[in-house]
Design a protein around this nucleic acid. Structure first.
Lengths: 188, 188
DNA sequence: ATCATTTGTATGTTATAACGCACAAGCCCC
DNA sequence: GGGGCTTGTGCGTTATAACATACAAATGAT
């Protein structure tokens, strides 16, 4: 994104036309003058954040619509096989298949984790706003979140805050396999 | 978010201090004047989008850091059991367990889908930028994306563009169970 | 203690955002 | 054809962003 003004101009014009609004009607809805809206759409002026907020709320879209471009590069079809990409990092009882590593456009990573019998791990708090989902495929797994252990069986899923201390524990004598997704609110 | 200026003020100050920078040093890095940075941090002025972009790129953070607040409400721990929430909407061969429905703060929904034997479905294109992940738990499933059918077995995952025509097909005589995640780039 | 440097704030000046208004062009109805 | 309304652009005025500079207070070194 070389010039945010160009993305903003194009997106405002498209949003307005998609909603079937003239500059006049949009000015009424947003409380921003018709002349200014035209200047923005033609890339002749860069609005203040306060003005952009008025536009976004008036049109019922989020501010980031105008700020962050939808990725130009289309999502490509990717097929991955956990068995061929599973890794066994230094840790003894944990294996990780990074199915879809973090990409800024999506804001999360999607992994398959395998917890061997008896394995336990306590994780320090991640950055503020991090959210994690753990969804059981096979086996059982205990998850520590908000100071409490939750026992998950096959077919169960948990969502918890990753920005606080949390943990994983396989209390059985069989492995546990899960899909896990970690979402980061802002990461460049 | 009642006033974007307050979030912007607090976030700029925190980011700057986290990076251990004075207003003077930040002015050097961003090309925005020290006096203006101070005005922004004290909430006395609302910068233009162009100025905010200079600040974000100079500090190496994304624009949305300053625009979209990290949700104030902390992520609560939620445990869900697919068997108790699985639904069988009108469609004959598809069952849906909405494990974690769409929330704007995260930008996606996370579901468990069950495709009964022989079931086939072609989906129209979703809105621009939609991305979908399908990850096999049990059985086999064919996925149509980019004009081509891909056969997925247990342990395989696929990521594809949901903003183009795509499809699902269970070619076997046993059910197929998957985790699926649908990510929407901007949705209010 | 003094001196030099850094830090954040205040102020006046300059540049530009944001506005109200006028107007040309297009469209529809009689 | 004329008249009325809508639409987007241009222009001059007003408000405020953005700046350069000055300054008081804090900090660090001698």
């Amino acid at each position: 994104m070389l010039d945010p003004k160009d993305h903003l101009a194009a997106t405002l014009k498209l949003t307005r036309q998609t909603q079937g609004l003239s500059l006049d009607k949009t000015a009424e809805k947003t409380g921003v003058s018709k002349a200014m809206l035209g200047q923005i759409e033609r890339g002749e002026s860069s609005p203040t954040v306060a003005t952009l907020w008025k536009i976004a709320t008036g049109l019922g879209v989020s501010l980031s619509t105008f700020i962050e471009p939808v990725p130009e590069t289309k999502t490509q079809t990717i097929v991955r096989t956990a068995d061929t990409i599973r890794q066994h990092p230094g840790d003894d009882g944990l294996m990780i298949a990074p199915l879809f590593p973090f990409e800024q456009a999506f804001g999360f990573e999607f992994l398959e984790l395998t917890f061997l019998p008896g394995y336990e791990r306590i994780s320090e708090a991640h950055e503020p706003g991090v959210m994690e989902i753990v969804s059981l495929i096979t086996g059982q797994l205990d998850i520590l979140s908000d100071g409490q252990w939750h026992n998950l069986k096959q077919g169960q899923s948990i969502r918890f805050a990753g920005d606080r201390t949390h943990g994983y524990r396989n209390p059985t004598d069989a492995k546990a396999v899960v899909h896990t997704l970690i979402h980061y609110p802002h990461r460049p």
